[in-house]
């Protein structure tokens, strides 16, 4: 197991290196010039040329890459081309909102989604199962921003129970932190609840049709015991796989929710950086995101061993 973890950690470094090279080249070969954006609309070509030179954007690409890569190896991700502030500082300012939103969304989605899936599988073909099917269809087809605007209209403007937008750091108090995250969490959880519920339902139904479940029923096991002790545990691996993949997608996909609810998270940081061609920020976030993605997958793989004793590395 230890050797497996070390191998996977080493592969993380390789993945990050490849992502780094790819992103660096992709950004430099894409149209766009940060100097022109910095200079503004009224800038003359001479002003833009001067800024390009000052920023080192006229240096050969290999020299620029080497400068950046050596910085990364020494823990220096560089500074924003625009504000001059360190990339790691900018990312750290944005991490808490994104992680808060992602974790809350995962907790709500897994709790509600798995519970709904179990209930639907338990009473397959019943009213709840059919209602869940309709809910899942809605969850998959209604975009998050539409749900977000509905929630804002009802809960923030009509009855004024919750704020429209913004984020309060957790150190300002648990109450304000939670209050600002309720609407974005509900909006973002909507499709994930539908997804997890459908996957849970399908996995449990598959397990319930196994011979050993029939044997358990013949031995007089209760419905509760069959469902939670036998079916859910055996259906756990595919559910966990989906949750792991979803978590990775969630972290990289919160951009729309962050935009609708004006949450200053990593997603918005990247989108703004892309619009501004702020290369060091884009590179820094993507390098770290790729590392995180690999680590989440590793965590999921390791969790398999807890659920299914047959799995060993």
């Amino acid at each position: 197991m230890a050797a497996y973890i070390v191998r996977r950690m080493l592969s993380t470094i390789a993945v990050m290196a490849m992502v780094g090279i790819f992103i660096f080249l992709l950004l430099r070969l894409s149209p766009g010039d940060p100097a022109a954006i910095i200079a503004g609309d009224a800038a003359t070509p001479q002003m833009i040329a001067g800024i390009r030179e000052q920023l080192g954007l006229n240096d050969p690409l290999p020299a620029q890459f080497l400068h950046w890569a050596l910085g990364i190896l020494s823990g220096d991700f560089g500074g924003s081309i625009f504000t001059g502030r360190p990339v790691l500082l900018l990312i750290s300012q944005r991490l808490q909102p994104t992680i808060s939103l992602s974790i809350l969304t995962m907790i709500v989605s897994v709790t509600v989604g798995v519970a709904f899936g179990i209930l639907a599988a338990w009473r397959v073909g019943g009213v709840f199962d059919r209602t869940l099917a309709a809910f899942a269809a809605l969850g998959f087809s209604v975009p998050v921003f539409v749900v977000g605007y509905f929630l804002i209209y009802w809960f923030a403007i009509s009855v004024r129970w919750l704020p429209v937008q913004g984020y309060q750091p957790v150190e300002h108090g648990l109450g304000p932190w939670l209050v600002h995250l309720i609407l974005p969490t509900v909006a973002l959880s909507f499709p994930y609840i539908a997804y997890f519920a459908r996957i849970t339902r399908a996995s449990i139904l598959e397990v319930l049709s196994e011979d050993y479940m029939r044997t358990a029923a013949a031995k007089g096991a209760s419905s509760y015991s069959m469902l939670f002790h036998h079916a859910l545990k055996n259906a756990g691996v595919p559910i966990l796989t989906v949750i792991g993949i979803s978590f990775a997608y969630l972290i990289s996909g919160v951009v729309i929710t962050e935009t609708v609810f004006n949450i200053p998270g990593v997603g918005r940081l990247v989108v703004d950086a892309i619009n501004n061609r702020d290369y060091p920020i884009i590179q820094g976030v993507l390098i770290l995101a790729s590392g995180l993605y690999v680590l989440v997958n590793l965590a999921v793989d390791l969790t398999y061993t807890l659920i299914d004793p047959r799995i060993r590395y």
Binding site: P163, V164, G166, V260, N262
Partner: peptide
């Protein structure tokens, strides 16, 4: 849209 909602709500 969010900006306008924030203005309406007095934020």
């Amino acid at each position: 849209q969010t900006a306008f909602a924030a203005l309406q709500a007095g934020e």
